[in-house]
């Protein structure tokens, strides 16, 4: 039998079209979120854009919320809050935005995608210094971060945790026990500014860096590989997490219901379990 490449191509194309599902038009600019239109039997999708540090707690909240709202499917997009804000402003289809700081939600408010005043603080978080469990550099105090030759891994300044880390260093430098040289000396040890908190955590857990600064909630997810050094309250920057429904949501009631659930005793209980502080 003679081979026909065209016939083969047609078969492949048919299979491809069948596999993609013809009605769902591909949406190349929005790869992060499922875009399948809800059909009669299918679930209604609620797109929640949440800061990376909320990953574990929000994954527990999803099934509980879905159980209370039959036919609803929550689709999360976890990333650095600054990245989510940029995505939303570029038109990504979000219904709820849970940010790790006020600044990034203000970015979205500025573009009128969230109504000013609808954002509510739902949890707080604090910073902690982490080392690998083995801690070969022998870092036991905050002052040790200024030891020469260390490899510190921070978040980029655009990431909320990165800004908070800088605030912590600035505050410490004003105290006589740390001296003004503290902040620049510590900064000289930084070898990388990562784009999110979780990648700092992974690189410290792998032992690639000597120390980093993450949220207490992140450190709590990997106690097996991570050691922590507390940053005292007077130096610690308490991060506030605001949440808000988006103006352009196609399911505004559901978006409001999700925000309400996160603020409800049930939602707050889950967040506390993952190390967050109540607002």
């Amino acid at each position: 039998m003679k081979r026909s490449p065209i016939a083969l191509l047609m078969i492949l194309l048919t299979l491809l079209v069948a596999a993609c599902g013809a009605p769902a038009a591909p949406s190349p600019t929005r790869p992060l979120v499922a875009t399948t239109a809800p059909t009669a039997a299918a679930a209604t999708t609620l797109n929640v854009f949440a800061a990376a540090s909320l990953t574990d707690a929000f994954k527990v909240i999803a099934p509980a919320f879905e159980a209370a709202h039959p036919g609803v499917k929550i689709v999360y997009n976890f990333a650095g809050a600054q990245q989510l804000a940029a995505q939303i402003n570029e038109g990504a289809p979000a219904d709820v935005f849970a940010s790790a700081n006020k600044k990034q939600i203000d970015v979205v408010i500025a573009s009128s995608k969230i109504i000013s005043g609808t954002a509510q603080i739902f949890v707080r978080n604090r910073l902690v210094v982490i080392t690998s469990k083995a801690n070969p550099a022998g870092i036991t105090s905050l002052k040790d971060l200024a030891k020469p030759g260390l490899k510190l891994i921070f978040e980029a300044k655009a990431v909320p945790a990165g800004q908070y880390s800088l605030d912590f260093l600035t505050k410490a430098s004003k105290l006589p026990e740390y001296t003004a040289a503290y902040s620049p000396t510590v900064m000289a040890n930084v070898v990388s500014y990562e784009d999110n908190v979780r990648s700092v955590l992974s690189k410290i857990a792998l032992g690639e860096g000597d120390a980093g600064i993450v949220y207490t909630t992140d450190a709590a997810t990997d106690v097996e590989h991570i050691g922590t050094i507390t940053i005292p309250d007077e130096l610690n920057v308490v991060a506030v997490y605001p949440i808000a429904p988006l103006v352009e949501s196609k399911v505004p009631d559901l978006a409001k219901a999700f925000v309400a659930y996160v603020l409800s005793p049930e939602g707050q209980q889950v967040l506390v379990k993952y190390g967050f502080l109540l607002p």
Binding site: Q82, Q83, V190, S192, E194, D195
Partner: peptide, 27 residues
Amino acid sequence: TILFAGNFPGRTQTMPLAIYLGFEQDI
């Protein structure tokens, strides 16, 4: 690059990294 070399302006932040991180602060 971002996994192995990290991101440090002038040392390991190449154009693609600067583009990616720039997307978040200054498009």
